[in-house]
Design a protein around this nucleic acid. Structure first.
Lengths: 239, 239
DNA sequence: TGATCGGGTTGATCTCAATCAAGGACAACA
DNA sequence: TGTTGTCCTTGATTGAGATCAACCCGATCA
């Protein structure tokens, strides 16, 4: 496995001016606690395509995404794949109470994470209601996102799916201060297809259609929303 | 709204020999706390079809299901519907951190719930790590279920969807001690369709096919799994 | 310079589930 | 007893997206 642990010296510096701290689990902690938690963590890096953890394996760690994007997915025995989400900086991976990983996670491009042993994190959190409440909050937000995605998978057309995906991605990026004219899409067409319950061909055709209709413009570096109201209408299911 | 609040006298009796207590959040509480929490709750009853709360409304209460089944669903503006789940006794409804209801909930048959004001529940939970951890656990379990459902919606055939649904329903019922030869399905065909991303006709046809193939047998009162291994194989995606 | 490869696009055809349409079973009720 | 309404089933047809197939483009490399 392509995993490299960064040196001890890097640890605190990373935590100190961590760009993800505002939205990560750490937001619930004061300075002292932050330092204490940093002692329990190690920073790990994964190169593009590397698997951080695999579905059904015993989960021994929690992770907090520091930089990069991950795809989180479940596989069926015949290798059909459903990407249940993409993780961005600030996202917390792992759930107390479930002994095994519920999905696999791998890096899209280079990724760095804070890794905590489940036990030590649990001990640390045990009597810190503020941190526990923060975990509930993050879990709730994740659950809301999952439910919204069920609507997409169960009840939307291909065009609506792509539009929803783009609007949702834009919102997530701007939520972590990465908004901008041109929106990077680090994942491949196949990832998008497996996220939206489509095939790669349908994704490609739908991008082409949206471009032909003047809703978006695609570049190697990402996508620009030309007709945001139209995209938002499609995303909302008005049409 | 068809809502009736049960008398004060009923309150404690219900809590005392509550059939859902073992799997509800209350499982995290000791006797004293349980009594204290009971003070904050009121028991409410909804008749079949009544709406407990509606999507996008301000959430002022949390609920814990005491008896009955609810459908939890999201609507698109043009009235397409996705049922994101069914709630059973022990399920907790509502999430701290989100001001509005993320979905609507209504009763399938008669339902009774424990209702808590969000504020008083939050105050009660504030410094009870055990309760907070229990909430994380329940949220995590719910999230895992949501992700499994995404696989179903995005990557499974109609036949696999129905088989998965039946197996999942069986497991949930047995998880709350309601397992049995004949499995009641309180929801209508349309509910199943809107849960699985199908139409009512496809659900009906697929039930017929599974019955023709000797996998299930349907009765007015529910369904019997005749060929469980076959149903489980379909459910797992092996076929 | 050409060969190879991964990722993406586009066209032709097929298929599974949606849609359209009709009718059956059963309960509630006048 | 017939009427109405709800829920479910079944058949015929359609259509959105899957599948099959070909090709494009840029990067890498011999």
């Amino acid at each position: 496995m392509k995993i490299s642990v960064l040196g001890e010296g890097t640890r605190c510096r990373l935590c100190h001016d961590c760009t993800a701290r505002g939205f990560a689990i750490c937001a619930a902690l004061d300075k002292t606690e932050l330092r204490e938690l940093a002692q329990l963590s190690r920073h790990v890096r994964f190169e593009s395509g590397a698997t951080v953890f695999a579905q059904a394996n015993i989960a021994t760690s929690f992770f907090s995404v520091h930089a990069g994007t991950l795809r989180l997915y479940k596989l069926l025995p015949d290798s059909r794949r459903q990407i249940v989400g993409f993780a961005l900086p600030g996202d917390f991976l792992g759930l107390p109470g479930l002994p095994r990983h519920e999905f696999s996670a791998d890096a899209i491009g280079r990724v760095t994470l804070c890794q905590f042993s489940k036990e030590s994190f649990a001990t640390f959190a045990e009597n810190r209601p503020q941190l526990l409440r923060r975990m509930i909050e993050l879990a709730g937000r994740e659950l809301a996102r999952a439910q919204e995605h069920m609507v997409l998978l169960g009840r939307r057309s291909a065009e609506e799916k792509i539009a929803s995906f783009l609007i949702g991605w834009r919102d997530r990026l701007s939520g972590i201060g990465r908004g901008g004219e041109i929106m990077p899409l680090p994942m491949k067409r196949l990832d998008i297809a497996d996220h939206l319950g489509l095939t790669i061909e349908t994704v490609s055709r739908t991008f082409s259609k949206l471009e032909r209709d003047g809703v978006i413009q695609t570049f190697a570096s990402g996508v620009v929303l030309l007709d945001t109201p139209r995209a938002e209408a499609l995303s909302a299911g008005i049409s």
